[in-house]
Simulated assay, not measured.
Amino acid sequence: MNLFPPAEGAPPGFRYEEDFISREEEQQLIAHIRELPLQPFQFGAYEGKRRVVSFGSRYDYTRHAVKDALPPPDWTLSIIARVEQFGGPGSAPIRQVLCTEYEEGVGIGWHRDKAHYGDVFGLSLASECTFRFRRAAGKGWQRFHLDVEPRSLYMMSDESRHVWEHSIPPVASIRFSMTFRTLAAGN
């Protein structure tokens, strides 16, 4: 595995590692995700184009709170342990695993993950995507983007997690991701 230091201009607290998993592991994870009961992403009265399923916990957009979800399947446990290790000494344990399918032409708009969650890790599978960041800077935006490769892992903590927004423009081909979240203090 090659650990790449943040590229120039990357938000503080953002880390990225290519080839976090092998091609064989990637294919196994994709096969498992394809077998899951993925449902269109619901946020309030709106339905997103991506399909998801949560384990451990889920965010309830109606109650604006984190709720329990089914425990993570056994096939996720070793990857959860590796992601926690990537978080470094003293990192909080992973409390949510979100599996997502993005069909060709689907992306995700500008947002910050809910404040109920702490650090956020993303494992990209099947195809690359462009991961975009922005934050207000005077009358404009300070921006950063990174082409995220399949099998890579990113981590957002500190400013990259709490100050910067992020988005993914529509993908060129089907993409899967596994998002791992810790809980914020007090949740």
Rank of each mutant, 00 (worst) to 15 (best):
Q28C: 06
E159L: 07
W141G: 06
H145D: 15
S22G: 07
A92R: 06
L77C: 12
Q96C: 09
P93C: 08
F144K: 05
P89G: 07
P93F: 08
A137L: 11
S57E: 08
R175L: 02
I30Y: 01
G88M: 13
H166S: 10
H111T: 08
G56R: 00
S173E: 06
A184D: 13
W110H: 12
G107V: 01
R132Q: 14
C129N: 09
E165M: 15
D60Y: 10
K139H: 11
P73G: 06
I33F: 06
P11W: 02
W75N: 10
T100V: 11
V120G: 00
V97P: 01
G105A: 02
T130I: 06
C99Q: 03
M155N: 04
S91A: 14
Q96Y: 00
S91L: 07
K49S: 08
W164Y: 14
I79E: 01
R112L: 14
P93I: 09
V97M: 02
V83D: 01
D19Y: 02
G88S: 13
E17D: 07
Y102E: 00
D113K: 03
R15M: 11
R50N: 07
Y154V: 12
E35Q: 14
A185Q: 11
E84S: 10
Y61R: 02
I21C: 03
V97N: 02
E47M: 04
S54V: 07
E159R: 06
P89S: 14
R82A: 14
S78W: 05
R50H: 01
R15V: 12
L183A: 13
V106W: 03
Y59W: 12
I168V: 15
L36Y: 00
K114S: 05
F55G: 04
D147K: 05
Y117G: 01
L36R: 05
D60G: 07
S78T: 15
H64G: 08
F43T: 00
D147N: 06
P40T: 11
F14Y: 12
G88I: 07
A126K: 05
H166L: 12
C99I: 08
S78K: 13
L146I: 14
